[in-house]
């Protein structure tokens, strides 16, 4: 665990320094593009974590591995947080760039629906008292979601291209310069490690809560009390 934190900091600090100081300001957007160093990695993580959640959920469903179930549900709240961060930073960026907090852009909309999918998973898990059963239910839901995410994404893209109003023209993506790209990749890796730290913490708590009536947890707690 401390190792993970050290690696996370080693990636995060140069990433932030490179992103916020070393990288040159964008010729169009000035300094406000720098929010991508938070925004883009969180958006990547939001999809990545959903996949992790579904895969570990499937493992838990098929081989009945308790740890996989716990990893799956622990990922859900971290993933929801990243999705939320991606949405918030996106709209913070959108205000100076597009002149509005929110546009019904294809990516924004599918990210929002992804957030709802995460919230559905978390809500379903919370609603079922028997946590082993809840894990199975969540795994089924996550797998259904995985089949649906591409369909939802493409339908939203398609809807958007048909409805595209003249109000907002999305900027052409300039090919990104190396001095901007390296901090971005560092941040993406740092976020991966942050996820690992967060998910392990959550999984630990989840595991202890689930097994709170078993002997090894009781001895562990009583040892810690002394």
């Amino acid at each position: 665990m401390p190792w993970l934190v050290i690696i996370f900091l080693l990636l995060l600090l140069p990433g932030l320094y490179g992103g916020l100081y070393l990288a040159p300001p964008d010729y169009q957007q000035g300094d406000s593009y720098r929010i991508i160093y938070i925004h883009v990695p969180s958006a990547w993580m939001s999809l990545f974590i959903y996949m992790v959640m579904a895969v570990t959920g499937a493992i838990g469903l098929i081989w009945r591995i308790k740890l996989a179930e716990i990893m799956s549900i622990s990922s859900a709240s971290v993933g929801a947080c990243f999705t939320f961060i991606a949405l918030v930073t996106g709209s913070l960026w959108g205000k100076p760039m597009w002149g509005t907090w929110w546009v019904w852009d294809a990516r924004l909309t599918s990210e929002l629906i992804l957030l709802f999918l995460y919230l559905g998973v978390i809500g379903l898990y919370g609603a079922i008292d028997d946590k082993r059963m809840a894990s199975k239910a969540v795994a089924i839901l996550a797998l259904v979601g995985v089949v649906n995410i591409p369909i939802i994404h493409y339908s939203v893209v398609w809807w958007n291209t048909l409805h595209q109003g003249p109000t907002v023209t999305k900027m052409d993506k300039p090919s990104i310069h190396v001095s901007m790209l390296i901090p971005l990749l560092l941040m993406a890796l740092a976020f991966k490690f942050y996820y690992l730290i967060a998910v392990i913490q959550r999984a630990r708590i989840e595991l202890l809560t689930r097994e709170r009536n078993s002997q090894w947890v009781k001895t562990m707690v009583s040892e810690n009390d002394q």
């Binding site: 809500g123 379903l124 649906n148 339908s155 398609w158």
Partner: peptide, 20 residues
């Protein structure tokens, strides 16, 4: 009390049908 949860689970999945 499955009602509210049900809408949270199902409505996002209905999006493609609604759009098309």
């Amino acid at each position: 009390r499955g009602g509210m949860i049900l809408s949270l689970l199902v409505l996002p999945l209905y999006v493609p049908v609604l759009i098309f």
